[in-house]
């Protein structure tokens, strides 16, 4: 029961972080909010693995941790260029 409460709390944290996606002044702020989603989603999965008694969820959490950084890397390398007269800065 405590674990489900912890998962609920973490979900509320994720939802609060969504405000930053909506009003983030720069594109990087929005990207960082997505990164927060990755970390909090990972924590939710780990807690649910204990609360729902499904140890195979830890493997999904492993996949999350491997793939969460891919979006940020692509963002920095491909979308947010150095000398860009960009529309979204």
């Amino acid at each position: 029961m405590i674990y489900n409460g912890v998962a609920l709390f973490l979900l509320l944290t994720v939802i609060a972080g969504m405000v930053r996606i909506i009003k983030g002044p720069t594109v990087a702020d929005r990207m960082m909010a997505a990164q927060l989603f990755g970390t909090c989603g990972l924590a939710i999965l780990l807690v649910l693995a204990r609360g729902m008694d499904m140890p195979e969820l830890i493997d999904i959490a492993l996949a999350f941790s491997l793939l969460a950084t891919l979006a940020t890397m692509t963002f920095v390398r491909r979308t947010w260029y150095k000398g860009d007269d960009d529309e979204h800065s």
């Binding site: 492993l62 950084t69 890397m73 920095v76 150095k82």
Partner: peptide, 29 residues
């Protein structure tokens, strides 16, 4: 497995934090 997850997340987030901060400095923020 849990400790492996933590190490991977540490590596990934420090790398991406460094990349984003450096690119923000390069863009003159």
């Amino acid at each position: 497995k849990l400790i492996l997850i933590w190490l991977l997340v540490l590596l990934a987030s420090s790398t991406s934090c460094h990349l984003v901060a450096r690119r923000a400095l390069q863009k003159g923020i």
